[in-house]
Amino acid sequence: MRPSTMWYTLKQGFINIRRNWMFSIASILTMTACIFLFGIFYCLIVNVNYIAKKTEEKIPIAVFFDEGTTQEQLDEIEELIKARPEVEEVTFVSGDEGLENYLNNMYPDADEMTDDVKESFKELFLEYSNENPLEDSFNFQVTINEIERQDALVSYIKGLDHVRKVRQSSEAANTLTSFNQILYYVSSGIIGILLLISIFLISNTISVGISVRKEEIGIMKYIGATDHFVRAPFVLEGIFLGLVGAAIPLVLLYFLYTKTINLLVENFSILGGSMRFLEVKELFKTLCPIGLCLGIGIGFLGSFLTTRKHLRV
């Protein structure tokens, strides 16, 4: 395409927008609402995923061994596990420590007991049970830094000699994942409806533009303008409306997200301690291109379909 033709197409696109400014604004606002809602749901989903991941990373994998596994064999297994890049830390938990943890879990007030009371409690328990029932439950607590590789790591550990059982504690993460799935379906439905409305409104704006310029289009076709040449200004108009309709909510979301996260962390310290939200820059690395592509895509689709329908002279 020649620069003069490109300039002509651009100019005609903007003339269309100016001529039908009310419809153009309506299209931009609908698109803004649509992408804004999409952005909110996206922030929620991504953050829930992020929190689930962090939660999973905090909960270690427990590796149990066959009865009679020697210290040398344990050391060897520990080295093998540590050699994996996704492993952050490997801690050995002996049978005694296991019993103590068990008691702490069974009696939530155990933290408030003095060491003497704890010791007598333990002795009493051993007396009744004759021996520590968790004697053979010595294990490695493995924390990881890449949750995506948890399953692969578990499979690897299960394949090692002398390993009896590997326990993944992913309940909390699973709950969050389930919540995320519900959120995903609900948001997909709402966003889908809004996208259809956006396509319809953009298509309507383009139709009005076409009807206003019907005579001009007719002349163009008689003179020998190609379909692409006739369509280009309208498609450009649609893309521009989509782009503006996506840019506005993205800017709004950027500031809104930053403010909200700051507010949550400052005012609800309990959240700040246990939960970590995704950094705004990290979030926008994906949200920004997705939002813009969505806007441009809807604008293109709405205008392209409309011009295809109306411009066959």
């Binding site: 033709t5 163009m220 020998g224």
Partner: peptide
Amino acid sequence: AFAQRVINRPT
């Protein structure tokens, strides 16, 4: 000029 513009004639 419009008739030339639409068939991509140079300025």
